[in-house]
């Protein structure tokens, strides 16, 4: 798109605040450096040169929850890991999103037993579920793009006005 065609003579473009904020949120969404099982290997592959998630402004995996916007739950969550995961989620600043990557994080997968949470949505609210065991990096990137669509459609100013 040629931006210059929209600028006119005054060098000004008009849009809504929501669109600008959502655009900036989607294009610098920093995931948390956080892997639980084999899905984390695919998450690393999605970050590495062949798939390169930095195309979406996601090259920075933050090792601190206080600096990240997106939690990718890559792998099965055991009953002992659950409280840790919830704590990390609570430490992330608003706005924050969660992707449940793979079958184990989505519904327990093959681990239907006493030790594993049957879906990470028992602990944290999930925005996007990515199927696969493990999902290929393309699938994860598709999940991320689906989340971007969700964020772009977020009418947060209107929602806040409704709450008042």
């Amino acid at each position: 798109m040629g931006v210059e065609q929209k600028l006119g003579n005054m060098g000004v473009v008009t849009t809504t605040l929501e669109d600008v904020v959502n655009w900036s949120r989607t294009n610098a969404m920093w995931p948390m450096l956080f892997g639980l099982a084999c899905c984390a290997i695919e998450m690393m592959a999605a970050q590495a040169s062949s798939y390169d998630m930095s195309r979406f402004g996601m090259e920075l995996m933050r090792a601190s929850p206080r600096q990240s916007d997106l939690m990718i739950v890559a792998g099965r969550v055991s009953k002992k890991m659950g409280p840790v995961l919830r704590r990390l989620y609570d430490q992330m600043p608003e706005p924050k999103w969660v992707i449940a990557m793979g079958d184990c994080a989505s519904c327990g997968g093959v681990f239907n037993n006493y030790a594993i949470y049957q879906g990470v949505d028992e602990i944290v609210p999930v925005d996007v579920f990515v199927a696969g065991c493990p999902p290929r990096p393309e699938a994860l990137i598709h999940g991320v793009l689906t989340l971007h669509e969700k964020v772009k459609a977020d009418r947060f100013i209107a929602n806040a006005a409704d709450k008042k």
Partner: peptide
């Protein structure tokens, strides 16, 4: 010790199990 933990969710029993799930807020 019981082998399974949760009944698998299929289309015929989806809602029944969904109601019992402890979803997070």
């Amino acid at each position: 010790f019981p082998l399974g933990y949760e009944e698998p969710q299929f289309s015929f029993n989806y809602e029944e199990i969904d109601l019992g799930k402890p979803y997070a807020k």
